[in-house]
């Protein structure tokens, strides 16, 4: 039993294994991939209709940025409409970034109105990785972070470093 979403996700996953971009990684969450459907090949009906497919992901903060070497954890939630619909992506590590909400949700155009079905897991993660040091302060999700980024870079860096150190302890 496979659907186009599931085949695509497996493909994305393989790509993340064989040729991952530097500093990011992702893998499906155990017990979820295979319980999505009954695994018997004759089965045409999902016996456990879990509507989502989940992945855990990690982004290492890029070098020469305040986020350097942070180990930021994320979760990704894919629906059956993937890749025609973007996945839900959120940080589960504590973040201090102008475009990340307190809940960890991201404010990133390619995950919303500029999504393209040509993106894959690797592309999403590298985009988020580059967003870390290249925030957009015109539409802040975290106003405090945005203001500090604009007006008090030293304090901003300090707050970011706190989240980096926190990420090592998780």
């Amino acid at each position: 039993m496979s659907t186009s979403a599931r085949r695509r996700l497996m493909r994305d996953f393989k790509r993340m294994q064989t040729d991952p971009p530097a500093g990011v990684s992702a893998s499906p969450i155990a017990d979820n991939v295979m319980t999505w459907y009954d695994d018997r090949p004759e089965s045409r009906v999902p016996t456990h209709p879990i509507p989502f497919h989940y992945q855990n992901a990690v982004i290492i903060g890029p070098a020469d940025t305040p986020f350097e070497d942070g180990t930021f954890r994320l979760v990704m939630q894919f629906e059956e409409a993937y890749p025609n619909k973007p996945p839900g992506v959120k940080f589960v590590s504590q973040m201090f970034h102008p475009n990340v909400y307190g809940t960890g949700e991201l404010c990133l155009d390619i995950l919303q109105n500029r999504w393209s079905p040509t993106y894959d897991v690797a592309a999403i993660l590298t985009s988020i990785q580059s967003l870390l040091n290249d925030p957009n302060t015109s539409s802040p999700a975290n106003v405090e972070a945005s203001n500090l980024y604009k007006d008090n870079r030293k304090e901003y860096t300090k707050r970011v470093r706190e989240t980096v150190e926190k990420s090592w302890e998780d």
Partner: peptide
């Protein structure tokens, strides 16, 4: 799982 992922990301 996250520890594994961190190791992979660092390795790469």
């Amino acid at each position: 799982n996250f520890d594994d992922l961190i190791r992979q990301a660092r390795q790469k």
